[in-house]
Design a protein around this nucleic acid. Structure first.
Length: 256
DNA sequence: ATGCCGTGGAAACCACGA
C-alpha cells in the first residue's frame, strides 16, 4: 500500500500536474495540502475520472486539505484539529482508510518571526501534539503526514545558517517537532535514510531546484504499529521539474 | 540579504507562501 503527500499549491491551478502525477505513480492514498479553493471548487470530477474518491476541507484562497484514495474504503474521522473552535483555517483532515488512520495536516508557516503568525504556528503545533498523543498509542496503525513547515535538523536545510531566524527553523519550532517525536513517532524518511540529504521543497526563484537549494519540510510520522510495516519511502523529486510544478515535490511511503 | 516566483481574488494590485 502506497501513501503519498503532496502540497499542490493551488489544486485548480495545479490540476494538470496533479492528474499527471496520480496517473503516473498510482498511490493508493494521496494527502493534499494548500488546495487554495473553497469547498465547492474542489475538482472532484477530474479526480474521480482517474478512479479516486476524495474527502476534502476547503477554504477560500488559502490552506485546504484533502485525502484521495483509489478503491479503498475511507471514513472521515475529523476535519478540524481539536482545541480551538475559533481557529477557522482548513489545515487538518483525518480519515480511516482500509484499517489505517491517516492524519493529513498543513502546519502554519509562521513567518515573519517574531510576530502573531509565529505565535499562531506554535499554538497550532501544541494542539497537534496534544491530538497526536491520543493517536500514537493506538494499536491501529497511524500515519501523520503533510506539510509540517519544519526542517527538523540541519541536514534538512541547504544552508542552515541562513535559516536560524526563519519560522520554519527557529529553535522553538524544532523543539516543538522534537516534543512531538518524543511521543514515539518515527520519521519514515530518516528511519530509512538517516544521513542522506533529501529535500521536498525548492523555491520558485533563483533556480533553487536546479541548484538543489531545498528544504525537507513534508514528513511522514508513523506510530509503532505502522512503523513495523514500513518498507520504502521516497520523494518524487522529478515532479518538481515539470512545467507549472508546485514548489513542493510529492513524498510517499510503501507499507506492508 | 532578498519573495527574485507563483497562486488566488479582487481589481489592474495585494496577501500570502517558505
Amino acid at each position: 500500500m502506497k501513501i503519498a503527500t503532496y502540497n499542490v499549491n493551488g489544486v485548480n491551478g495545479r490540476l494538470p500536474v496533479l492528474l499527471r502525477w496520480l496517473a503516473e505513480t498510482q498511490p493508493d492514498v494521496a494527502c493534499l495540502q494548500e488546495l487554495k479553493a473553497p469547498q465547492e471548487k474542489f475538482p472532484e470530477a477530474a479526480i474521480k475520472e482517474l478512479g479516486y474518491s476524495a474527502i476534502w476541507h476547503g477554504q477560500k484562497s488559502w490552506n485546504g486539505v484533502a485525502i484521495l484514495t483509489k478503491g479503498l474504503p475511507m471514513e472521515e474521522r475529523r476535519r478540524v484539529l481539536p482545541g480551538d473552535p475559533e481557529d477557522l483555517h482548513s489545515r487538518y483532515i483525518e480519515a480511516s482508510v482500509n484499517g489505517i488512520i491517516i492524519g493529513n495536516l498543513y502546519l502554519p508557516n509562521g513567518n515573519p518571526y517574531p510576530g502573531e503568525k509565529f505565535e499562531y504556528k506554535l499554538r497550532w503545533f501544541k494542539r497537534l501534539t496534544e491530538h497526536a498523543a491520543t493517536l500514537v498509542s493506538l494499536q491501529t496503525p497511524v500515519v501523520l503526514t503533510g506539510d509540517f513547515n519544519v526542517m527538523p535538523t540541519e541536514l534538512d536545510v541547504y544552508k542552515p545558517e541562513r535559516w536560524v531566524n526563519d519560522a520554519l527553523f527557529r529553535i522553538e519550532t524544532r523543539t516543538a517537532f522534537q516534543d512531538l517525536m518524543k511521543q514515539g513517532w518515527t520519521d519514515a524518511i530518516r528511519k530509512l535514510y538517516p544521513k542522506e540529504v533529501i529535500y521536498t521543497f525548492w523555491d520558485y526563484f533563483r533556480d533553487a531546484y536546479g541548484r538543489n537549494a531545498g528544504l525537507r519540510i513534508d514528513h511522514f510520522l508513523l506510530n509503532p504499529p505502522m512503523q513495523k510495516r514500513l518498507r520504502q519511502a521516497a520523494v518524487d523529486r522529478h515532479v518538481r521539474g515539470w512545467e507549472k510544478s508546485s514548489d513542493h515535490a510529492p513524498v510517499w511511503i510503501e507499507i506492508e
